[in-house]
Simulated assay, not measured.
Amino acid sequence: MKNLSLSNIIYGVVAVMIFIFVIKGFVEYMPAIDAARTEAAQNKGYENPTDEQKSKVKLSSKVDNQVKGAVAGDAMVTLSMILLFAAIAGAVALPVFTAVKEGQLKGLVYMAAAGGILLVLFGIGYLMASNEPYEKYGVDASGSQMIGGLLGMVYILAIVAILGIVANIFAKRFN
């Protein structure tokens, strides 16, 4: 237990999560392949195909690969989202714990100010964004405005970063 560090705990949690999602993929594969065989049997003229009729249907490797890809993709998207939220929680929580532990509450004020500035920039981007729905991509009006707000915030931050770089170059030239 002497060498138990935060990074080892994180590696262990990630390894267990990957193992769980691999098992989840195997469990979801059988019903998905059964559904593909049922659909193929129905296309051959069987209304309610039995297991024997479904077993006679040979799926092409393309269909089999599509089923495998869909099952693996679903599991990996879920895993990615869980890891993303865990990373965000860690990125927010660990500096807070460190600042409280070390008694540097001024750092918490700076962190809160940075979060407030990001919220204001998002609000500006959100107000500038169009709320036109994109049915082709399954995005409604509120989702469209939310995406536009995030893009607006990124554009504003990119412009500020570029202006900061240019200002830094000029400041170095004239000093």
Rank of each mutant, 00 (worst) to 15 (best):
M1A: 14
K2M: 10
S5F: 05
S5D: 09
L6M: 14
S7Y: 09
N8M: 11
G12C: 04
V13H: 07
A15G: 07
A15M: 08
I20H: 02
F21E: 02
F21A: 00
F21C: 00
K24F: 10
V27E: 05
V27R: 07
Y29G: 07
M30R: 10
M30D: 11
M30A: 14
A32Q: 07
A32C: 06
D34C: 02
A36R: 02
A36T: 06
R37S: 06
E39T: 13
E39H: 09
Q42E: 14
N43P: 01
E47I: 14
N48F: 04
P49N: 07
T50P: 00
K56Y: 09
V57C: 05
L59S: 02
S60P: 03
S61F: 09
V63M: 08
V63L: 06
D64W: 05
V67W: 02
V71S: 00
D74F: 03
D74E: 12
A75N: 04
I82K: 03
F85G: 07
I88C: 05
A89K: 10
G90E: 13
G90V: 09
A91V: 10
T98S: 12
Q104R: 15
G107P: 07
L108H: 02
V109P: 09
M111V: 01
A112V: 14
A113Q: 07
A113S: 08
A114M: 11
A114T: 11
G116L: 13
I117K: 06
L118V: 04
L119Y: 09
V120Q: 02
I124A: 07
G125V: 02
Y126C: 02
Y126P: 00
L127R: 13
M128K: 11
S130M: 03
N131L: 02
N131Y: 06
P133V: 04
P133E: 03
A141T: 14
A141N: 04
G148L: 03
G152A: 04
G152E: 02
M153A: 10
V154S: 13
A158F: 10
I159K: 01
I159E: 06
V160P: 00
G164E: 03
A167I: 05
N168I: 05
I169K: 13
F170R: 07
A171E: 09
K172D: 06
K172E: 07
K172S: 09
R173H: 11
N175Q: 12
